[in-house]
């Protein structure tokens, strides 16, 4: 009887202690749960994807370089379709050029997570169309294919465009939009410049806008 009483008291005390210890960490735990997707300050999810050009791209191969990753879709008017889109307006091309000026070693990649069948195209056809949009803008930037959406989901990519910047140590340094609403502030170029200078990236997160990524069903 005394033993079970002792166990009961110990259990209550331990449980209470755990609850007390856990309470102040509520926010931190919730953030940790969110870390199932890419999070600023955490290691970037690794990926190995095939590009439209047939080459294999590993994030790990770019250790030491800053990597800008953009989710893209050729048929989205915020991303690749039409004169006012990120690529069609020339903003993306200017960004890539200015990024290279800020840091010649920085790498710009795009990932297309559009599912098979969206707008009657296979994922590969959509990726090729995205690549054509980039070429038309005068840039040579790889388009990596993610037809099952696994990498998109691992990053938490929601829109096209949606930008993730990974620093040379493989840590996520920025997540959000490429620019502010009127285009007067280029968050990508600012982030790459800050990383190159060894300074903190500010802002490190912004609100992304654009079409939803057309993922295959999970």
């Amino acid at each position: 009887m005394r033993l079970s009483h002792t166990i009961l008291v110990a259990t209550i005390l331990t449980g209470t202690a755990l609850l007390v210890a856990a309470s102040p960490r509520l926010g931190a735990d919730q953030k940790a749960q969110k870390a199932a997707v890419a999070t600023v300050g955490q290691a970037a999810p690794e990926f190995t994807l095939t590009g439209v050009d047939g080459k294999i791209y590993n994030l790990a191969d770019y250790k030491g370089n800053t990597v800008v990753i953009e989710w893209i879709c050729s048929s989205c008017p915020a991303s690749g379709s039409g004169a006012s889109s990120y690529w069609g307006s020339g903003t993306a091309s200017k960004t890539v050029t200015e990024m290279k000026t800020a840091d010649a070693g920085a790498v710009y990649l795009t990932i297309d997570s559009t599912k098979d069948g969206h707008q009657g195209k296979t994922s590969a056809e959509e990726g090729s169309a995205a690549s054509a949009v980039i070429s038309k803008a005068g840039q040579s930037v790889p388009v990596l294919l993610d037809p099952d959406g696994k990498i998109g989901h691992s990053y938490g990519a929601k829109t096209t465009p949606h930008i993730f910047i990974v620093n040379g140590t493989g840590t996520v340094a920025y997540i959000g939009a490429p620019t502010n609403d009127d285009g007067s502030t280029n968050y990508i170029v600012n982030a790459v410049t800050a990383i190159k200078a060894g300074k903190p990236v500010e802002p490190s997160t912004t609100k992304n806008k654009g079409c939803g990524v057309k993922y295959a069903s999970k």
Partner: peptide
Amino acid sequence: VDWLVCKTSCIMGR
């Protein structure tokens, strides 16, 4: 006025 209107895909309006 600029807007993004969407269904399964999106169109920009101005």
